[in-house]
Design a protein around this nucleic acid. Structure first.
Length: 728
DNA sequence: ATAAAGTGACTTTTT
DNA sequence: GTCACTTTAT
């Protein structure tokens, strides 16, 4: 039947597999999504499995959306009842349904990273721990790691002093989450596994319902996710997993590609299908990618092949610095567009770290060309978006004290830290959330509370409480958009953002954009809207019809493909990243990251590096990436001198730089007159007297290092610090 | 209660 | 260099 007609034999074998566990090891571009969607369609269309008995799990909403669409296309009908979504969204849905067994109610909110930090800080304060000494972020890392490994606060075992502290913070943090009627991302996964463990009847219900479970990107599952899959598939044993250990790049997030091997150990009878034929790249690109990945130890070799022919050889280019590296990208894209009739949207620029995007953005801006940037400051992490969402979450769940603390004085309404402290104390004394105290104050007549706050501040609190009450009541009859408008209007948010700067205008645009998100689903209720926005990521919003080149990290590039790919920063220390040098496991992951990048390209691949690179404000000479050395010479064309002398490179780079932009370079060469010299005595208004150790120009300012008698060595910007030159 | 100055961190970040 | 955050000065 035509459902199978477009598949090669390996793909067909996987799609039509009978009952029992199936593991599909799919190389890049081998049609793994195709296999997954056709498998689902096959089950529904051929085996007559009702859609509601299938669960398909992905890691991103985008992947889930696409899969649903593609299954529907193959089947030519809608798939009502099919459970398809990310691990997190599916878990959230199930947890809400089974909330009776949870420490939170069914309308719990999901705390994101910054909420988590706020809560971790609170936990540290509650335990009288110094947040300088125990950084909230490292506490959260430990907590997240524990949750991914399904370790509860009670089961948390401390071997070290740090872990002992982390364990205590974990317990307090968890209690705070529940007080806020909130769960974090990791709780969604661990919560499900615990729920299933503690309530076999609940588990049995879902085990029966889900006759088939399909999983994408299986190499990226963590312990909790794997445990959940095992639980659900324990009875029917129809677990269909697709993955590629060579594309495992999320170890640092708790993912463990060894789950692929575990799957084979746990299911000795599993049908394993290897997909090696590539439908994306030229053979040259595949050969380069294999040359890189084959150096990783302990892996089963895959022989990727294509029928697309050899295509063009790769271009390796060594630029003088990151600006020239970016310039090369812009120029090359311009040339390809004009000479080869390529659309700029078919090009992607990939890099290891977000910081690298700046030079590229600058180059595009200088050339007056548009680009699309994925990631960086994520939309939902922006201050204005978080503010507005915090308001909505507070209206939805007055117990959410993290959101309350965020918006209590935003925009400023005369509620300072003293007042907040008093409110917190009052809430703690009465054992109720701060939101309830506020709403009590906003009642007519105000509720009686013991609150150490004076007239003006008290009025501010009561006013805010009144607004909160109003919104809380109004939320039932207003749409999300209407509620947003009411809140924005009443708090004067537009006015607050509009501070006359361009940034203020941008921020308001973002607010309008969020309003647009809400307007897209006018019938959605507040709960649904909040859940949707708390589970989205940036890649989810990457439009398909882009006319401009895409700038993104290698991590964000996974799962995507582009006719032309530029990989930047092939320097030792960047890719592979410095932090992976002393850990072979991490180094192997860097190599996989490179592999992922290489295999995104369909036709052309450009590998770039810079001889000199400015990082953290310091310019340093760098060595070529060791991965670059692994690519055989015969796959490379247009090799700029790489192992030849550095001087020639520098000279040619300068020559190019001058011919390209006759003087339009950014004002890096602004002369700075140095006022201070080593050995001079100076006086600073607060640090007192000291001796100048060093003075140099940097970033258009004079940076002076001074050894102060009272406070030791400091680095100050001469234009900022009020330095007085003393005699001597 | 804000604004300016100083400090310190800084890889990636599917949800 | 840039961001977030804290301390200090107004």
């Amino acid at each position: 039947m035509d459902l199978l007609s477009g598949l090669n034999s390996a793909q067909r074998q996987a799609v039509t597999a009978g009952n029992g566990p199936v593991l599909v090891l799919a190389g890049p571009g081998s049609g793994k999504t195709r296999v997954l969607t056709h498998r689902a369609a096959y089950l529904v269309g051929h085996v007559a499995v009702p859609p509601y008995r299938i669960m398909a799990v992905t890691f991103t909403n985008k992947a889930a959306r696409e899969m649903r669409g593609r299954i529907e296309t193959v089947l030519g009908g809608s798939l009502r009842g099919l459970t398809i979504g990310t691990f997190h969204s599916i878990c959230a849905r199930l947890l809400r349904r089974e909330a009776a067994h949870l420490p939170v109610t069914s309308d719990f909110v999901i705390f994101d990273e910054s909420d988590q930090v706020a809560l971790a800080k609170q936990a540290l304060r509650d335990l009288d721990l110094d947040e300088k000494q125990y950084r909230p972020q490292s506490m959260l890392n430990a907590i997240s790691k524990a949750k991914n490994e399904l370790i509860t606060p009670e089961a948390f075992r401390a071997e070290t002093y740090f872990a002992e502290i982390a364990g205590r913070v974990y317990a307090r943090y968890q209690a705070l989450l529940h007080e806020n009627n909130a769960l974090d991302f990791d709780d969604l996964l661990m919560g499900i596994v615990m729920l299933f463990d503690d309530h076999p009847d609940v588990l049995a219900k879902y085990q029966q319902q889900y006759e088939h479970i399909l999983v994408d990107e299986f190499q990226d599952t963590n312990t909790a996710q794997y445990a959940m899959l095992r639980q659900l598939a324990a009875v029917n044993r129809n677990l269909f997993a697709v993955g590629d250990v060579d594309q495992a790049i999320y170890r640092w997030r708790g993912a463990d590609y060894r789950n692929v091997h575990r799957f084979q150990d746990d299911h000795p009878d599993a049908l394993t299908v290897l997909l090696e034929q590539n439908y994306r790249s030229t053979q040259t690109i595949l050969d380069a990618a294999m040359a890189v990945i084959d150096r990783n130890p302990n892996r089963t070799r895959k022989s990727l092949f294509t029928e697309r022919g050899h295509g063009e050889r790769l271009t390796v280019y060594e630029a003088y610095n990151e600006d020239e590296e970016a310039q090369f990208v812009v120029e090359t894209i311009a040339t390809l567009t004009m000479q080869d009739g390529l659309s700029p949207g078919e090009c992607a620029v990939m890099y290891r770290t977000n910081a690298q995007s700046r030079a590229v953005e600058d180059a595009f801006i200088r050339a007056g060309l548009p680009y699309r940037l994925v990631g960086a400051t994520r939309f939902y992490a922006r201050r204005e978006i978080k503010d507005l969402l915090a308001y909505l979450r507070l209206v939805h769940n007055p117990a959410d004290s993290v959101s309350l603390a965020r918006v209590l004085n935003v925009p400023p309404r005369g509620i300072g830290p003293k007042t907040i402290e008093a409110l917190q104390a009052c809430a703690a004394a009465n054992g109720v959330p701060m939101g309830d105290i506020l709403r009590g104050l906003g009642q007519e007549p105000p509720a009686e509370v013991q609150l150490a706050v004076t007239g003006k501040a008290l009025k501010a609190l009561a006013d805010f409480g009144r607004q909160l009450n109003y919104w809380h009541t109004a939320r039932a009859e207003l749409s999300v958009v209407q509620l947003m408008d009411v809140i924005l209007d009443q708090i004067g948010y537009h006015n607050y953002l509009n501070d006359g700067t361009d940034e203020g205008l941008d921020r308001w645009d973002n607010v309008v954009e969020l309003r647009g998100v809400a307007a897209e689903s006018p019938d959605a209720h507040l709960t649904g809207f909040l859940e949707e926005v708390s589970l989205v990521s940036d890649v989810d919003n990457l439009a398909e019809d882009g006319q401009a080149p895409t700038l993104l990290t290698l991590h964000a590039a996974k799962g995507l493909e582009f006719p032309v790919v530029f990989i930047l920063g092939l320097d030792d220390g960047i890719l592979p990243h410095q932090r992976s040098f002393d850990d072979p496991e991490q180094m192997a992951e860097e190599r996989r990251l490179m592999y992922v990048g290489l295999t995104r390209a369909k036709d052309r691949l450009y590998l770039l590096r810079a001889f000199r690179r400015t990082q953290y404000g310091e310019s340093d000479v760098s060595q070529p990436s060791r991965f670059l050395e692994d690519i055989p010479d015969h796959l490379v064309a247009g090799h700029t001198p790489r192992r030849t002398g550095r001087k020639a490179n520098v000279a040619s780079a300068y020559a190019r730089a001058t011919t390209w932009d006759g003087g339009s370079k950014p004002a890096a060469a602004q002369p700075v007159v140095l006022r201070f010299r080593t050995g001079q005595r100076v006086n600073h208004s607060s640090f007192g007297e000291g001796i100048v150790i060093e003075s140099k120009a940097s970033g258009g300012d004079e940076i002076v290092s001074i050894a102060f008698e009272a406070v030791g060595l400091k680095r100050l910007a001469a234009s900022m610090a009020n330095l007085e030159l003393l005699e001597g």
